[in-house]
């Protein structure tokens, strides 16, 4: 079989573009990287302010929450599942914890708050995992259900009002500086320290997927769940783990969202799940599971953040945003779908 394809490719050796396309299809992150470079070069040429350090810091800041969501989503996608509820989890956790801390323990230190957010997110994620496992229904449908239950619960029973009296520990966490640069115009551009949370999450996700038995199990189940089950992988354990992990990242992401915005809005984050799914798919993870890399996901997140932020710089009205992201999903899906046929 391999002989045949090898002979085939040499006989078509002259067909250059074909081979490049084939290589790209086999290395999805490279495709994403090329798109990033293309967008950057074009926008940079149209408006030089794109390359200003403050703009780059802004984009780094904007990609943290999407990145956290994306890593959790990647984990679920790798196992062949899909999750529509993570933004609702993040919204519930961030609003409930922020208001509760402000009301009962305004002096609570940030590490403890983050721990609470992680625990809350994990708990909701475990519910998701158990439901997906025991209802034996497509994860898409189950998590659309939990999304509405969680968001409906938040808006009916917790509150609908914008909350601005954010506890000082949460607020100051968002102000820690990692790097400070004085720009030519004299203003100061700041890279906040919480981008490190995304870096840590990326490393942990990479480690779980590539260096642990759980990672093996996730890819095995994503590849073919009934065969994986016969090989002795515990489907329930994996389902609960991936949704719990995604919930954990979502909870932490919710808290980061509050500390960077310095307010808690229960209507925030709703609808952003589509951008996250776009990012992960653009990063080359197959929607039917069994593949996906952390680096690809991060690149996908960067690309989506880029699109969301630079359209205005490029002189395109922001109303085009949704359309462009949608087209990117279709484009990436089409390119990577051709991989499945080979």
């Amino acid at each position: 079989m391999s002989d045949f394809t090898w002979g085939n490719s040499t006989s078509e050796g002259a067909a250059w573009p074909k081979r490049i396309v084939a290589w790209l299809v086999r290395h999805p992150p490279a495709f994403t990287l090329i798109l990033i470079v293309l967008v950057s070069v074009i926008v940079g040429a149209i408006s030089p302010e794109f390359w200003q350090i403050s703009n780059i810091f802004d984009m780094a800041r904007a990609s943290v929450v999407t990145g956290m969501f994306g890593l959790g989503f990647l984990m679920i996608l790798a196992a062949g599942g899909i999750d529509m509820s993570f933004t609702a989890i993040a919204a519930l956790v961030m609003y409930w914890i922020t208001t509760a801390v402000a009301a009962y323990m305004p002096s609570m230190p940030m590490p403890l708050i983050l721990l609470m957010a992680a625990a809350g997110g994990t708990l909701l994620g475990v519910c998701n995992g158990l439901l997906v496992h025991y209802l034996r229904a497509p994860a898409l449908i189950v998590t659309i259900g939990t999304q509405y239950v969680i968001r409906g619960f938040l808006l009916t029973f917790i509150g609908t009002e914008l909350f601005v009296n954010v506890p000082t520990s949460i607020e100051s966490f968002g102000k820690y500086e990692l790097w400070q640069v004085e720009t030519d115009s004299g203003s100061i551009a700041v890279l906040p320290a919480y981008v490190l949370v995304l870096v840590v999450a990326a490393i942990v996700t990479w480690w779980i997927l590539n260096r642990t038995l759980m990672g093996r199990a996730i890819f095995a189940i994503g590849g073919n769940s009934s065969i994986a089950e016969r090989l002795g992988y515990d489907l329930r354990k994996v389902h609960v783990f991936i949704f719990a992990y995604a919930g954990l990242l979502a909870g932490v992401a919710g808290m980061l969202h509050v500390s960077s915005n310095r307010l808690a809005n229960p209507f925030d984050l709703s609808g952003s799940e589509l951008g996250v799914i776009a990012a992960v798919v653009l990063g080359g993870a197959r929607i039917t599971g069994g593949s996906g890399t952390v680096i690809g996901t991060i690149l996908g997140v960067i690309l989506v953040t880029l699109v969301n932020n630079v359209l205005i710089l490029a002189g395109i009205p922001s109303s085009w945003q949704t359309f462009v992201v949608g087209c990117f999903i279709i484009l990436a899906g089409t390119v990577f779908a051709s991989r499945e046929r080979t």
Partner: peptide, 27 residues
């Protein structure tokens, strides 16, 4: 076309087109 010819997963295909159609409506 996306589902049958380009063999996209229906979820991704219709999610992408739903964003694109909504985006078009916004534009």
């Amino acid at each position: 076309f996306l589902v049958s010819r380009a063999s996209l997963t229906p979820i991704i295909a219709t999610l992408g087109t739903s964003l694109a159609y909504t985006g078009l409506s916004v534009v």
